[in-house]
């Protein structure tokens, strides 16, 4: 077969797997969110649909599909329809550059475990895309022509802009150590247990807090603050349009966890694992193990995201802003300066 045909087939298959895998992962995150919240509150949680309630999320999505799609009379119809598409589209687009492992040879063809491997602006692409994601929420709030939605949308844009700064700055330390924006190379620079968490503990904490704010999770879920804003930016959405916002939130959560694993916890690196298992560079099995390691490292962070939601109350808006601008930003800047000085000394 011709080379380009094979390559495009492989690429198409990878895209299919990633998009569907993400949506299923988001569905199961919703299930686990409900289960964990139930356990924390000494309840049992969903257990009726399928064994242990495992098909609950599919029932939920099915219900959302069947529901009537209500568009307010005074809403700006075009933007109202496009806002959820932007939200979920951007959330999934980020996965073009996220690698889940290195590569394997399939019939002499080198297959990478990411859609666009070795793209030299990978990290910038993720940060840029997550900024565009704000448009989804802001447009949703504005086009609904509802004051609560508008407030939610405005809050989300203000919050995401403030925390994007400290998020980006907290990653500069990582960039200085690895010397590359390519996610593959960042992971490779951490091989052998030299994970960035040991060199950048402060950077990691700032990134973690900012990630909570970026994904609109409690304690920073002000855009949808139920008691004061009804539903926030998605008040006027129903049916699957609401479902798309919901899925986007969970996909963003997975993205944040993937970034934490890749940037701070060595990605697929586990010291001595591949040598003891005797897995060759480029074998299919090695790629599978690498994928498993990345996903396995993501699970504790996903759990942390969910558990935090059921443990902490929400911040007040001024507290949120003063934390972002007065604490996170100076700390991130100090982190860069200290990292730079230490690197100068030890070079």
């Amino acid at each position: 077969m011709e080379q380009w045909l094979v390559q495009s087939l492989v690429l198409g298959l990878k895209m299919f797997l990633i998009v569907n895998g993400l949506l299923i992962a988001a569905a199961y995150l919703v299930y686990f969110e409900r289960k964990i919240s139930a356990w924390i509150q000494n309840r049992i949680g969903p257990n009726r649909v399928g064994p242990l309630g495992l098909f609950q999320s599919f029932a939920d999505v099915f219900k959302l599909y069947l529901k009537e799609d209500i568009i307010p009379t005074l809403a700006n119809k075009g933007f109202h329809a496009i806002a959820p598409v932007i939200s979920i589209g951007i959330a999934i687009a980020v996965y073009a550059v996220i690698p889940f492992g290195e590569y394997f040879y399939l019939g002499g063809e080198k297959v990478y475990l990411s859609i666009a491997p070795h793209i030299n602006v990978g990290l910038l692409f993720i940060l840029g895309m997550s900024s565009v994601g704000v448009y989804g929420l802001t447009l949703a709030g504005w086009s609904s022509n509802n004051k609560y939605s508008l407030l939610g949308g405005l809050r989300s844009s203000a919050q995401m802009i403030s925390y994007e700064l400290s998020m980006g700055l907290s990653l500069i330390g990582v960039l200085m150590i690895s010397g590359s924006l390519d996610l593959m190379q960042i992971v490779q620079s951490q091989t052998g247990g030299q994970w960035n968490i040991f060199f950048q503990p402060l950077g990691f904490i700032i990134f973690l807090v900012s990630a909570f704010a970026e994904t609109n999770r409690t304690p920073f879920d002000l855009p949808e603050a139920e008691p004061e804003l009804v539903g926030g930016y998605h008040t006027e959405y129903s049916g699957m349009k609401f479902g798309l916002f919901f899925l986007a939130e969970y996909v963003n959560m997975v993205t944040a966890c993937a970034m934490m694993v890749l940037l701070f916890f060595g990605g697929w690196d586990v010291p001595f694992l591949y040598e003891t298992l005797g897995l060759e560079q480029g074998s299919v099995l090695r790629a599978l193990v690498q994928f498993g390691v990345v996903v396995g490292k993501m699970i504790p962070f996903l759990f942390l995201f969910i558990q935090t939601r059921w443990s902490l109350p929400r911040f007040r808006y001024d507290q949120l802003m003063s934390l972002g601008w007065k604490v996170m930003l100076p700390l991130a800047l100090a982190n860069i300066a200290v990292t730079g000085i230490i690197m100068m000394i030890f070079q």
Partner: peptide
């Protein structure tokens, strides 16, 4: 706080 909720997860329902 997280530790408290974690312990709570394993209490009888």
């Amino acid at each position: 706080g997280l530790g408290m909720t974690f312990v709570e997860m394993f209490k009888p329902k």
